[in-house]
Write a protein that binds this DNA or RNA. Structure first.
Lengths: 138, 138
DNA sequence: CTTGACCTTCCAGTAGATGGAAGCCTTATG
DNA sequence: CATAAGGCTTCCATCTACTGGAAGGTCAAG
């Protein structure tokens, strides 16, 4: 199979597949004309990568997961550790985004959004009312 | 004020401040020895940037916001549009992360996490049970 | 005069691709 | 057989928003 077929079958862009080869996640064979030739096992790894990436695993996580995937002596504890680490990072990100969302939604709801210049969003960003007394007015 | 003072007062790393100058977000003066000399207005812009960035606004959003900040003829509608756009991006990201989190938490809860190789996480990533019959076994 | 804390510029690297140029290979068609 | 379309190759640049580090100038204290 050539890269185009693999791209269609895995849903991954050919560019991405080449990139994954470049960083050592897959190692397809080569035909005499230089074209990459993908085996079924390459397809499997790429499909695996596609799913792992869609769950947000980092490339380095994916590398570890692929290694465990191919290791029959693996301990599921190692897989779980990677997944839990990723889950923790997701939770951090969610907390951060949720806080942003809350602050931002509040500001947006306070802004008239008309043709006048007065804007609580800019006031907040400029620090108006942030830390002090009347002296803070510029 | 030199960059070190500004860094201390805004909480932004000096590197970041130099970077903001490089991309045209601020334009501090220069002393004869080549050192950057920051006015109060530079401080204000940097503080503004720090807050906008902490709310997750992109650099380009920040550029637009700063321009509106300095424009007394602005319409708050323009500010609100930027903020709403950002809010929409946050909501997208939150939806994506929430979906990831849910799928991942489920997988993690299914995994024994012991010394045996059987692992529902890897099974899922490998597509086991995804779309088919027994023939899918490799 | 030296030491150490600042400051400068410039270059490289991060994550994870993606876009595009230049050029070879293959296949279908006239 | 020529040619044109489409597929493949490599290489380099670009994106976001910094961050790290090297090499070297500046300044105040002792």
């Amino acid at each position: 199979m050539n890269i185009g077929d693999v791209a269609r079958r895995t849903g991954l862009p050919a560019k991405t597949i080449r990139y994954y080869e470049e960083i050592g996640l897959i190692s397809p064979l080569r035909d005499e004309n230089g074209y990459r030739r993908f085996r079924e096992s390459d397809m499997h790894r790429l499909a695996f990568l596609g799913r792992a990436r869609s769950l947000g695993f980092s490339i380095e996580d994916c590398r570890g997961l692929l290694e465990l995937y191919g290791d029959r002596q693996r301990a599921s504890a190692d897989v779980k550790r990677i997944a839990r680490g990723h889950l923790a990072r997701i939770d951090e990100k969610l907390a951060e985004l949720t806080a942003m969302r809350q602050a931002l939604a509040h500001l947006v709801s306070c802004c008239a959004g008309d043709s006048r210049p007065d804007c609580p969003i800019l006031d907040d960003l400029a620090g108006v009312g942030a830390a002090g007394s009347d002296d803070d007015r510029q």
